[in-house]
Computed example of a mutant assay.
Amino acid sequence: MSGQRELGNFLRTRRAQLRPEDVGLPDYGDRRRVPGLRREELALLAGLSSSYYTRLEQGQSMGPSPEVLDAIGRALHLDKAEQRHLHDLADRAKRRTVVHRPPAEHIDAATLDLLEAVGDVPALVSGRRGDILAWNRTGHALFASHLDPSGPANRGNRPNLVRLIFLDPRTRALYADWPSKARAVVENLRMTAGRHPDDTLLTSLVDELTTRSQEFAAMWADHRVSPCDSAVYEMHHPLVGSLTVRQHSLRPPQDEERHIVLAIAEPGSPSQAALRQLTRATVPSARQE
């Protein structure tokens, strides 16, 4: 999909989420043909002409300035992540995209050392598109115990977090509130797609999931964006039962492409006891002796 169309779709979906009362405009109770603000109302709030904003949404205007984008973002009440995504899409719309197949992702020694340093805390490292590049023993046991633990070492066929969430029944069953987890994954992937429109592997992943999962297709079409930084999830693990963990997504220094995902339970809670039980259950027999 062209950059202009992606930009227009994002603007339309965000405009549809706002009501007149949300932005201080009077609502006279008139019946609206579409939900949300009208184009002319949004243009007024952003200090733009209605015709210019209409052309922007319709993909007929190139190269809005950063100042114009900031004004539109304020009018749409975009948060920091959404504002960055808006600028990414606008930059994509005004430059020619050179499509290429990116090189295979790798994990450096420093990140592996960090993964080792967290000890028995469940942890994994994911790449740009959600491929699992590495995990520690308890990370594998918590997030994907039904998969081959050596999977991340297979560069041509690594487990992928997005595929697992939408296409793998066992991973789906891990989350009590699966829709919340699924939306977080899609919103983060949307941000990545805005930054890397030339990534053919990412485009293929989105095309595959859009075809194979109606739920993914619906969430993707909503154009919401948000980074996966930290969230609390109730999980139903087949070995240790129910537990509640906070999943933190950390970026290694000077690296926006990879994420270290940690699962931490509240100290002294039954969930922490469940994680300890999981750790004991997955200790190699040689260490148990």
Rank of each mutant, 00 (worst) to 15 (best):
Lys181Pro: 00
Glu208Ala: 03
Trp178Ala: 09
Leu202Met: 10
Thr210His: 15
Phe166Asn: 02
Met191Asn: 04
Asp177His: 10
His223Met: 11
Arg183Asn: 07
Ala182Tyr: 01
Trp178Val: 06
Thr171Gly: 01
Arg224Pro: 03
Ser213Pro: 04
His223Ser: 10
Leu167Trp: 02
Leu174Asp: 00
Ser204Leu: 09
Thr211Met: 15
Ala221Met: 13
Tyr175Leu: 06
Thr211Ser: 11
Asp222Met: 02
Arg172Leu: 01
Pro179Glu: 13
Arg212Asp: 12
Thr210Lys: 11
Val185Phe: 05
Arg183Lys: 09
Arg172Asn: 01
Glu187Ser: 04
Val225Cys: 12
Ser226Thr: 00
Trp178Gln: 11
Arg224Gly: 07
Met219Lys: 06
Gln214Ala: 09
Pro197His: 14
Arg170Gln: 01
Asp199Val: 08
Asp222Ser: 06
Thr171Tyr: 01
Ala184Leu: 09
Arg195Glu: 07
Phe216Pro: 04
Ala176Gln: 09
Ser226Ile: 00
Arg172Asp: 01
Gly194Met: 15
Ala221Ile: 15
Leu167Gln: 04
Thr211Cys: 11
Thr210Gln: 13
Ala176Phe: 06
Asn188Gln: 12
Trp220Ala: 11
Thr211Ile: 08
Ala217Leu: 12
Phe166Ser: 08
Asp199Ile: 14
Glu187Thr: 00
Thr192His: 11
Met219Glu: 13
Ser180Lys: 02
Gly194Pro: 14
Ala221Phe: 12
Glu215Trp: 08
Phe216Tyr: 05
Ala173Arg: 03
Leu167Tyr: 03
Thr203Leu: 15
Ser204Arg: 15
Met191Lys: 03
Arg212Tyr: 03
Met191Asp: 05
Met219Pro: 13
Thr203Asp: 14
Glu208Cys: 06
Glu187Gly: 02
Asp199Leu: 08
Phe166Ala: 10
Leu205Gly: 07
Leu202Arg: 00
Ala218Leu: 14
Leu189Gln: 10
Met219Tyr: 11
Ser180His: 03
Asp222Lys: 02
Phe166Gly: 03
Met219Leu: 14
Asp207Cys: 13
Ala182Asn: 04
Val186Leu: 07
Ser180Arg: 02
Trp220Thr: 12
Thr192Gln: 14
Gln214Arg: 15
Asp168Trp: 03
Pro179Phe: 12
Thr192Arg: 09
Asp207His: 13
Pro197Asn: 15
Val185Pro: 05
Thr211Gln: 15
Arg190Gln: 13
Val185Lys: 05
Asp198Ser: 13
Asp168Lys: 07
